[in-house]
Computed example of a mutant assay.
Amino acid sequence: MTERQDPTCSARGCRRPAVWALRWNNPKLHTPERRKIWVACDDHREHLEEFLSLRGFLKDTVSTQELG
């Protein structure tokens, strides 16, 4: 049995605990209902949201606790 590890931020080089889940999809590759997830710490949330938003990929952002 493996222990569940808390997610770490998806920003390059960051090892902080992630507290946000950015749900996105690339409409050229994914069906409309498919959601990929990047996770972010408080410091990188805005940067990652902007990156995804500029490409039209970001669907929503929720707390990692809401993911279950």
Results as ranks from 00 to 15, higher is better:
S53G: 07
P17R: 13
L67E: 00
L52F: 01
C9G: 05
S10L: 05
R55G: 04
K28F: 12
A11G: 04
A21H: 01
E46L: 12
L54C: 12
L58N: 03
W38N: 10
P7L: 06
A18G: 07
T64Y: 01
T31A: 14
Q5L: 11
R16T: 13
R16W: 09
H47S: 15
R12F: 12
A40E: 03
S10E: 09
L67I: 11
W38C: 06
P32Q: 01
C14Y: 09
D6S: 14
H30M: 02
C14M: 10
P32C: 04
E50R: 15
P7V: 08
C9S: 06
L48S: 07
L22R: 00
R45D: 01
R16Q: 13
G56N: 05
A18L: 01
Q65Y: 13
V39Y: 00
L48W: 05
K36Q: 15
V19Y: 02
C41K: 02
V62P: 06
P32F: 08
N25V: 05
A21N: 01
F51P: 05
P32T: 09
D42S: 08
A18T: 00
Q65E: 11
R23N: 08
T61M: 02
R12G: 12
A40F: 01
F57D: 00
L52Q: 02
K59Y: 10
H30V: 07
A21Q: 04
I37M: 08
N25D: 00
A40Y: 00
H47W: 14
L52M: 03
P17T: 12
S63E: 04
H44S: 06
R15V: 12
K28G: 13
D60P: 02
R23A: 10
E33M: 09
V19T: 09
E50I: 05
T61F: 04
E33N: 11
R15S: 15
E49Y: 05
K36S: 13
L54G: 12
V39F: 01
T31L: 15
L22Q: 00
R55I: 08
P27G: 02
R45Q: 07
R35H: 03
R34D: 08
S53V: 05
L54W: 10
R16F: 09
V39P: 10
T2F: 15
A18C: 02
S10M: 04
R16G: 11
K28Q: 14
L58R: 08
A40M: 01
E66A: 09
E46M: 13
Q65D: 11
R35W: 03
R35Y: 05
E49S: 11
G13H: 10
D60F: 11
R15L: 14
E46Y: 11
D6F: 13
E66R: 08
F57M: 02
